[in-house]
Computed example of a mutant assay.
Amino acid sequence: MKIAFIYPGQGAQYAGMGKDIYEKYEEAREIFEKADKALGFSISKLCFEGPEEELMKTENTQPAILTVCVALTKVLQNRGIKADVTGGLSLGEYASLVLSEALDFEDAVRLVKNRGKYMQEVVPQGVGTMAAILGLENEVVEEICRVASEVGIVEPANYNCPGQLVISGEVKAVERAVELAKERGAKRAVVLAVSAPFHCSMLKKAGELLQKDLEKVEIKDLKITVISNVTADYAKKEEVKDLLVKQVSHPVLWEQSVKKMIEEGVDTFIEIGPGKTLTGFVKKIDKSKAAYNFENEESLLKTLSALGV
Rank of each mutant, 00 (worst) to 15 (best):
L222H: 08
K241W: 10
A193F: 00
A232G: 08
G265M: 12
P251L: 04
N229C: 12
P251N: 07
L214K: 08
P251G: 10
E238Q: 14
Q256D: 13
V217I: 15
P197W: 01
K241N: 12
K236C: 08
S201E: 10
G207V: 09
V252R: 04
I224V: 14
E255W: 05
I224N: 02
K236V: 08
A189K: 03
C200D: 01
T225K: 11
V226P: 00
G207F: 07
M202H: 02
E255I: 07
E239P: 04
H199S: 08
G185L: 07
L244S: 02
V245Y: 11
L210A: 08
A196I: 00
A235C: 11
A206D: 04
I262H: 10
I219T: 14
M202V: 06
S195Q: 05
D233V: 01
H250T: 15
A193P: 05
G207N: 02
D213M: 07
V217C: 06
Q247G: 07
S228W: 00
L243A: 08
K237D: 13
C200A: 06
V230P: 00
E218C: 06
L203F: 05
E238D: 15
T225D: 09
F198K: 02
E255S: 13
M202Q: 07
V245L: 14
A186H: 04
L210R: 05
N229A: 08
V194S: 06
P197A: 04
K241I: 10
A235D: 08
N229K: 03
E239S: 14
L192A: 04
A193E: 11
Y234L: 15
W254G: 10
E264R: 15
K205C: 03
V226K: 00
I219S: 08
I227A: 03
L243G: 06
D221C: 08
T231H: 03
A232H: 01
V194T: 06
D213F: 07
Y234A: 15
C200H: 02
S228K: 00
E238L: 06
L210Q: 05
L214D: 10
V248D: 01
V226F: 02
L243M: 13
G185T: 05
P197L: 02
I227W: 00
E218P: 02
K236L: 15
N229W: 01
L253P: 03
V226M: 05
H250K: 15
K212G: 06
V266N: 04
Y234K: 14
K246H: 11
K236S: 15
L203V: 09
A193S: 12
Q256V: 10
E215S: 13
K212E: 15
T225Y: 00
L253Q: 09
V217N: 03
K260S: 03
I224D: 00
V190C: 09
I219A: 07
S249E: 02
E208C: 08
Q211L: 13
D221Q: 14
E218N: 10
A186E: 04
V190D: 01
K260A: 08
D233K: 13
N229P: 09
E238Y: 07
K187F: 05
E239I: 03
M202A: 11
L209V: 11
K259I: 07
L243E: 12
L210S: 03
V266Y: 02
A206R: 01
